[in-house]
Design a protein around this nucleic acid. Sequence first.
DNA 1: TTGCAGTGTCATACC
DNA 2: AGGGTATGACACTGC
Length: 471
Amino acid sequence: PYVRLGGLGVSDVDLKAYQKALDNYFPHQGGDQLKLQDTNQSNHNHVDSLLSLEGCLHLLSSQMENMLEVNLLEDTEVATSGRGQEPSSSHYSVSLTQMLCHCFSPHEAPLLKTDHPTESHSETRHSQKQDCFPQSDSSVTTPESLLCGSHLTGLFPAADIGNLTAHDNSLDEIKLMSLEDGCDPIEVSQLFEESSLDLALVLNSGHSTASYSVSSEGAAIGYNSDANSASSHGLEAIGGHSQEHTKYDHVEYPGDSECSKKATLKQFLHKHTYHQLPSQAASTPVLHQQMWMKPSKEVKERCCNTTDKKLSSDAHHANSLTIPFSVDEIVSMPVDSFNTMLAKNQLPHTQVSLLRDIRRRGKNKVAAQNCRKRKLKAILNLEEAVCNLQTQKESLKREHSQCSRSISRLKQKLKGLHRDIFSHLRDDQGRPVNPYQYVIHCSSDGSVLLIPKYSVKAEQKQPNEKEQIPK
DNA sequence: TTGCAGTGTCATACC
DNA sequence: AGGGTATGACACTGC
């Protein structure tokens, strides 16, 4: 609340007190400025300067009123005696004009100070993501639909299948696998309690793979089991791919917002991003056509693009190594499991190298996808920031013009006050005081000095030399 | 045919 | 030191 009128050596001004007085003196402007200060912290400097100006004005006016009373009531000789003024206290060699110039110099507000908090709420992010893709929930909660048409639904009572809905995706996946395996779901649940390494080994030990996608888009497929075609290892990588993207669906990024939802949705809707779905179905083309009603021609085309060829090649290599893991599993398994698997299979160096490459490529692919999503998100955030700053700029412009108008009004009032004061001032011979030869100066102790302009100029050159001005 | 956007991969830096 | 991650750059593809 205290503002030092910079560089002038003037004492601190209690803005609150001045503001209170201003409310009486300039009731309209004072209230406005207070409101401005309250509503926009970013323009604090503007308000401060205006408040200090108004404070100065009010101090000046009130003190001048007192002085006028003294002048009018007392003899001019008394006024010129410098009564009560210590020479040391009148060291202000600054003219009123200078002070006003200082006060009227608009300060630049810190324009970049924004009230917009950055949006990085990790807790809400997750729900936003989920809200963004409600279909993933629905897909999770309807495993029966995933199994519809398959031979699996008849194997277990509906209650068992219903249990699938009560667990997270991982457990759903495990249970789906157990369904396929004909295992007891309870056993699988117990297995789930064990270490991931053991789990992975158990789940993959008797089978080629079961590529499954319970959540997100993959859920529409349900799961893609190539257990029915155990010899189709060469294609499983494509199917397994979807699991990777299922995880990718749930990757979270700082500052998710509505914009990112749109962007992400755009990505999700893009054909490229999930072209693995038809590809995945290629491992079980009949099932795929039943579930997606896609023409086989399109499936073939999808399967034959370069990326899938590359993946198929990787998968082919991986499967030629008699390793009971899909490419996706090679990529996603913990490094300890991976190393254990390598050691267990006694593979030659070239094949180990190949597996490491497959793993590296798979991880880097996901990383690249995440990186691109982040980049897109950053771009959207920057665009939003630009919009916000433009809005803020317009607001500041309006506020600046409002402050300029207020300052103009105050200047007019000050001119009138100045003119009024000098019209009442008389020197010791009773002659009017020339306003061009004297300046009015307010001191910190409340006294008002009339200073000859030449002394002000002299003191500016020699600040230590002060002249006692007759009052 | 051209341009663009999406994607996978590599190389590299960093943790 | 090895593995994972992030990112720029490149090539390729489909639209």
